[in-house]
Amino acid sequence: MKAQPLVLKIMNVASGLLLAGSLAMVFLYAPLEAVMNHVQKIFYFHISNAWVGMLGFIVAAFAGIMFLVKKDLKWDIVEVAAVEISLVFFLIAIVTGSIWARPSWGTWWTWDARLTTAAILEMVYLAYMLLRQGIEDPDRRARFGAVYTLIGGISVPITFVSIRLWQTIHPAIIGTESASAQGGFAMAPAMLQTMFFCLFAFSVIFATLLWHRVRLGRLAQQVELQKLEAMQ
């Protein structure tokens, strides 16, 4: 397998620096929130991780469509990579969301639309992995994966809308419909700047990780081909 291209090496360094920079901004630059105190600082990384999850979700759905159109297995490799990364980052988002919720509202889980939809998306991804595991033929595996990514890609946004609608009738946290219950709070300018910096940093991290995971996928494809050759 070819060595890492220079651009990727630069991205590795950039990702590391941006991550460090984000931490610096969160802990040294952003002010302490009046009501929630320190735990609010999770917020920046919670949102950024969810953002990466979203990016992965979109890339996966796009790659799925591209595969069905072009029939090129390259797109399948991108699709798997995007699904995996989205899975991991939404997991982090869900866990941090839960940790943030506990001291803020006294409950580990709020059945709010975003958290619940993220959890459902994780189930879709796991189903996707199980689907692929049950198929030997690489072409069929890619086709089915692409179809399911498409189905998931359309159904999850509709799920979000329906849960959101359901929620307006059953407020998640009894008695509190204020902005803070939805996770809102007044953001000072320094907080906004920190938030945007983190979002940017994690976007770069996403691109870097995606590239690495695609390389892994290509290597796996090489090994599979080599196995087939060895069996002849």
Binding site: M123, V124, L131, G152, S155, I158, T159, S162, I163, W166
Partner: peptide, 14 residues
């Protein structure tokens, strides 16, 4: 069921 249930939730909720 593993494939179907997560994507059919909007139908069930609605």
């Amino acid at each position: 069921p593993i494939l179907l249930f997560p994507v059919v939730i909007p139908v069930l909720v609605a």
